[in-house]
Design a protein around this nucleic acid. Structure first.
Lengths: 220, 220
DNA sequence: CCACAATACATAGCAGCGCTATGTATTGTG
DNA sequence: CACAATACATAGCGCTGCTATGTATTGTGG
């Protein structure tokens, strides 16, 4: 028995915030609403505060990452019989997609891991991690890793490698080319988990190349 | 033929900024100078702007990290003959010290890797990395790694592992215990560089324990 | 030794920030 | 259809980083 919120306004504010982040404009309350026709109060109606807005932006970052990871083709159900399932390649491809996403949305990526702002949905990061866990489980089922390998642990370690490199590149200390270190690093990690060295290297290299611009955009 | 700057004022402002960061008080211009007896202008005399102050704080963070790494005992000149040189252990100890430093100064660590603020001395991060490079070189000379291993590359990869874990812990997504993943991760990395698996595991475990509170503080 | 000039530093005020108290317009519901 | 609950606009508060202006200090050439 009252006026209802318009989801389009919320989405427009969120999109504009992401756009301002991408175009490196300072995301201030007044600048944010200036282009939308609504007043500053709208931000408080939909997000409660600027911190609430940032929480929503973080959430948006994880959503886009999840969408990016979903684009990665899995070889679990190979369309081409000549292209057999290779879960280690899939696992690497997920890592490559993760890194590419960070490179394509550096400002959003920084906000995602900016401490001090709680996430709207605390399980968003866990959900991202779980995609890696499932890939590790498939690799175990395929006999690529030792039986005593804990999928959650190996997934977390792969995440740490991807995030470490992505973070150092996105925040400045390392050049883009440094992302290529993911290939030998993931290979060492997977060999340590029991995969055969030569076969592992081939899988990782193919997984890295499977993500568009993972191998090439690094040169730009 | 003019009044000279007092280095003590600069140091006091810098210390106070680090202290406010540690005690989680918002570091604003007015709050910063409030406790020092000087006016807001002093910040502009010594740092030019608040961004200049942040640059100096970043520098301070790298200085403290460098001091922390210098405290790590090297087995290059073993005091105890019963404790022979073990450069792989030394390399791990540097990684442990890096991670412990991040854990002990989380706010300073975040500022260090906060993009948008240039460093006063851009070579500060390189200098930190170079300590790792030298440790890798010693390990190569001791025959622990393959001859084709590039010390700079392996050092960078070790850094990425340490930073990845430290960053995910410091910014929230992972609990402190996750830092222990550094042990299997570094082991896999060093084995991939040619070290013998069993020997490597022992060296890494001893290196990890060599840094006070690296193995224990994780439990807190 | 001293007058000068260059510099450090204090004071006060500006524009912009996030936020909120207040008033108005809108809209679902009994 | 009248009411009440809610979205939203407007204006202003206290804060921010910053700077224009004035004053006090100090190293230096004569």
């Amino acid at each position: 028995m009252a006026r209802t919120k318009d989801p389009a306004v919320r989405a427009r504010l969120l999109d504009r915030a992401a756009h301002m982040l991408r175009t490196r404009q300072p995301v201030t309350l007044r600048a944010l609403v200036a282009g939308t026709g609504v007043s500053t109060m709208a931000v408080y109606t939909y997000f409660g505060s600027m911190d609430g807005l940032w929480s929503a932006v973080r959430q948006e970052g994880f959503s886009r990452l999840a969408a990016k990871l979903d684009e990665v083709p899995s070889s679990a159900d190979p369309a081409d019989p000549a292209d057999p399932a290779d879960p280690v390649r899939d696992l690497t491809a997920l890592g490559a997609a993760y890194v590419v996403n960070a490179l394509e949305n550096p400002d959003l990526y920084r906000v995602m891991f900016d401490a001090g702002f709680a996430l709207e949905d605390a399980g968003a990061a866990d959900e991202t991690l779980h995609r890696l866990v499932r890939a590790v489980e498939r690799a175990k089922e395929a006999g690529r890793f030792r039986a005593d390998v804990d999928p959650a642990e190996l997934a977390l370690q792969s995440w740490a490698i991807g995030h470490g490199l992505a973070s150092l590149v996105v925040t400045g200390p390392l050049p883009r080319q440094a992302l290529d270190h993911a290939v030998p690093m993931l290979t060492a990690q997977f060999v340590g988990a029991g995969d055969a060295p030569d076969r592992c290297r081939r899988s990782v290299e193919r997984g890295w190349e499977a993500v568009p611009t993972a191998a090439s955009a690094v040169g730009g």
